[in-house]
Simulated assay, not measured.
Amino acid sequence: MAVNDVRILILCKTYPSPSGRYTETTCVAGMDESGRLVRLFPVPFRLIAKDHQFKKWQWIKAKVEKAKKDHRPESFTIKVDTIDGGEVVLPGKGWAERRRLLSPIKVYCDFLDIEAARQATNQSLALLKPARIIGLEIEPVSDPEWTEEELAKLVQEQKQGGLFDDDDKPSIKTLRKLPFDFYYRYECGEGATAKTFRHKLVDWEVGALYWNCHHSHRADWERHFREQLEKEIPEKDLMLLMGNQHRFQDQWLIISLIYPPHQMQTELAF
């Protein structure tokens, strides 16, 4: 397949999850210069873990080709040794530049329309603007530590791309497993036609927020965590970047939270 040089704005990095042979260890997604959403893999774990190669809202240049074993239209294989980090798009006044860049992307108001698009065109990434966030659900995982099987999967998935050798296993162990799963329950639509949905949050920033709250507030972490995810973020002009799973494509995840400030009426006039 053809290898192309592309410029991509990073919109998503998910928390790594060694959930099986056919699922990505991490998901990195963004948009190209035409406004098309794209999914990139394999991305070396350490590029994300150390957060020094590229970050959310940063442009990167790289060589990519259409994924051979993933037929979702947005999925591309990235040549990791060609990644070149570029400028970071700052929020600026009213998120003006970020809003301009996002403007070509269709924003859905109903999750059922996203699922219908998947069934019709195999679409697997989409921006969703829910009517409201009902609440955050927190569920403990069955095993708060990586099992040996999970570690083996995590290492093996990375080694399949020739990214790691056996000496790298200790560095992978430094990734702390999240002891909880987090879900947003939200509504689409208004009044009698409103529909409720529930999807898991796998955004890297949500995982980092949990660890920051746990470190700073210890036993009181949940109150501060909920303050951000149930009040501070939903009070903004929140959009959910949705992505489906490779193996079970009717199952969707919230892979990134995008939350600009609400636009003032004077801003909407221009």
Rank of each mutant, 00 (worst) to 15 (best):
I60R: 00
F248N: 15
C27M: 08
E115W: 08
C12D: 13
P130Y: 01
F225I: 04
F225N: 04
Q265K: 15
M264G: 12
H217T: 10
G20E: 03
P91V: 11
T26Y: 14
A120P: 00
S75Q: 12
S142W: 01
L128C: 05
L229Q: 09
H214W: 06
D113C: 11
L151C: 07
I233F: 15
Q245F: 12
D167W: 08
R99A: 10
E267Y: 04
T174H: 12
L37A: 08
F270T: 13
D5V: 06
Y15G: 03
S256E: 13
H52Q: 14
K55S: 02
G207C: 15
E187S: 15
R46S: 03
G207A: 08
Q123A: 03
D143Y: 06
F45W: 09
H199M: 09
L163T: 11
L112K: 12
G135V: 02
T77A: 12
V43P: 06
R247N: 11
L128R: 02
S216W: 00
K173P: 01
I10K: 02
K66H: 13
K61I: 10
K55G: 05
W146S: 01
W57Y: 05
L201H: 00
T174Q: 13
K195N: 04
W211T: 05
E145A: 15
F111V: 01
Q58C: 10
L136R: 04
V38Y: 09
R36H: 12
Y22F: 11
G86M: 14
M242F: 01
G162T: 05
K69P: 03
S17M: 07
W252M: 07
K200T: 05
I8V: 15
P170I: 00
S171H: 14
F111P: 03
D165S: 11
M264V: 06
C109A: 10
L90A: 13
K55N: 08
L201Y: 07
T25P: 06
D167L: 03
I60Y: 01
V206L: 09
W95A: 02
V28A: 03
G86A: 03
D81Y: 14
P179R: 03
E232Y: 13
A2T: 07
E205G: 04
I254W: 00
P170E: 09
R218A: 12
V141E: 08
P260T: 01
I134D: 15
L257K: 06
N212E: 13
T174N: 07
L127Y: 03
W146E: 01
Y15W: 14
Q158F: 03
G85S: 14
D250W: 05
